Computed example of a mutant assay.
Amino acid sequence: MLVFNCTKAAAEFFTTVRKGTKISPLKPAPEKTIAASLQEKNRQSTSRERHLEALVQNKSQWHWLVHAIKVKRKNVLILMDYHSRFAMTFTGLKKGDNSGFLKVFAQHLNFHIQELIPQVITDPDVIKASFEQYKRTHSSNTFYQRGDRSVQSHINDVSWHIEMTADEIGELPAGIDLIAFDCYINNTIRNRKGKTGYFVPLQSFLHQWLCQYGGLSQAQADKLISALQEKEKARYQAMHHNMFDVVTDSIEAEHINGEVEAILMSQIQGKSATGNENNVIRVDFSKGKN
């Protein structure tokens, strides 16, 4: 089941009033928080068999946080996966258009998976099989009104970026430009409570998909993501060296070198690095891509 956990703003977006009657897809949440919902499944298990069943149920519930904002007087929905912090941004949706939202969700998810898996696996049958497994696992959906502070802090960063992007280009991105925006956001290095070191949402999301729907073991997915990290590291190092072709001030060059190395080491090895007040380090891996 796909679980869309809506903030108050998102809940209002999905709610309309017709002939004095409120129409909304939202249902009362069984637990107050997303974490409590996942923990409740495990508490219900009293034996090894029931524990394994609970783990399967947890995997069958894919939790997303949904937030709504206004940019240039238009509705923008920001979705973020609870576990990987992978984000998708939707523009052009009408208030209360729940079916339209689900359609766009499926389209964006399909596009991202079609782009991500070939980075680590070239067999097209893997993509097809993973989508079949995904559809079997999530044949239904539900909407609850509840949030999560940790996820919301990262959503707020996405909100800032979409507002800045709209100001720079004079309008909200749409179509392929919106997909490109998501790719940039999901290549942003982040950290969160309970997770050691920094991580890249795009890589965490891909790892999650390969394990849950691609039929890969944890070890197999780890190996593929590690290879992808090394590839990105080598490409970014090449970009890093090119910086010095245009840097003439030795002090400035030394400063850039230190920052780049800190980012790379924190991304690949999980060591501490310096971020801003939101614990975010921004790296645009989309630039310089062949």
Rank of each mutant, 00 (worst) to 15 (best):
T15F: 10
A36G: 08
H255K: 14
G258E: 05
N186K: 05
S45I: 09
E254Q: 15
N257K: 12
T33F: 08
N5F: 09
F90S: 00
L26W: 12
K70W: 12
H240W: 12
E132W: 09
S139Y: 15
L210M: 11
N290L: 15
S286M: 15
W209F: 05
R190G: 08
I179G: 00
A253C: 03
K231I: 08
K271R: 11
P30L: 12
F105T: 03
N5H: 15
H112D: 02
E40V: 11
T137P: 04
H154N: 04
M243E: 15
R235E: 09
I225E: 05
D284I: 02
E132G: 13
K19H: 08
R190F: 14
P30N: 07
K287D: 04
V17A: 03
L116K: 04
R149V: 15
V71K: 00
R190K: 13
M88T: 00
Q220H: 07
R85M: 12
K70E: 08
N156D: 13
S84I: 01
S24L: 13
K8I: 13
I113Q: 03
N58S: 04
A180N: 01
A166I: 02
T15R: 07
T142P: 03
T21M: 10
E40D: 13
E277A: 09
H240Y: 14
I179F: 06
P118L: 04
I69Y: 04
N5V: 12
